[in-house]
Amino acid sequence: MNVVVELRLPICDFALGELFSIRPDIRIELERIVPTGEQTMPFFWIIGDDPASVADVTVTDSLVDSIETLGETENGVLCRTKWSADGGIHNILTEQGATLLHAEGNRDGWLFRVRFPDHETTTRFREACDDASISYEVRRIYSFSNLPIQQYDLTEEQREALVTALESGYFRVPREASLSEIAETLDISPQAASGRLRRGLERVLDSTLFPPEEPSGVSEGS
Rank of each mutant, 00 (worst) to 15 (best):
V4A: 11
T208C: 03
E18F: 03
L197V: 10
I188K: 04
I46C: 02
E213L: 12
L7N: 13
T73F: 04
H90F: 06
A165H: 07
P35T: 14
E202W: 05
R196C: 02
A15C: 13
E137A: 15
F20C: 02
E213H: 05
Y170T: 06
P148C: 14
A161G: 10
E181P: 01
V57G: 00
V77G: 05
T60V: 08
M41F: 08
L179M: 11
E220P: 00
A55T: 04
E202D: 15
R203Y: 05
T155D: 10
L166D: 11
N91M: 13
S207Y: 03
H102P: 00
W83L: 06
V138L: 15
F43L: 12
V218M: 02
S133E: 15
A165G: 10
T73M: 09
I33N: 13
D25V: 01
N2H: 13
G200D: 08
E213C: 02
S178M: 01
S135L: 14
Y152E: 09
H119K: 11
A165L: 07
R80I: 00
F171H: 11
R32P: 09
E29A: 07
C129E: 12
S66D: 14
L205P: 03
R199M: 06
L93E: 02
S145T: 15
S66N: 12
Y142C: 11
A55E: 01
A15W: 07
E220R: 06
L30I: 13
V4H: 09
F116K: 06
D65G: 14
N106T: 05
W45H: 01
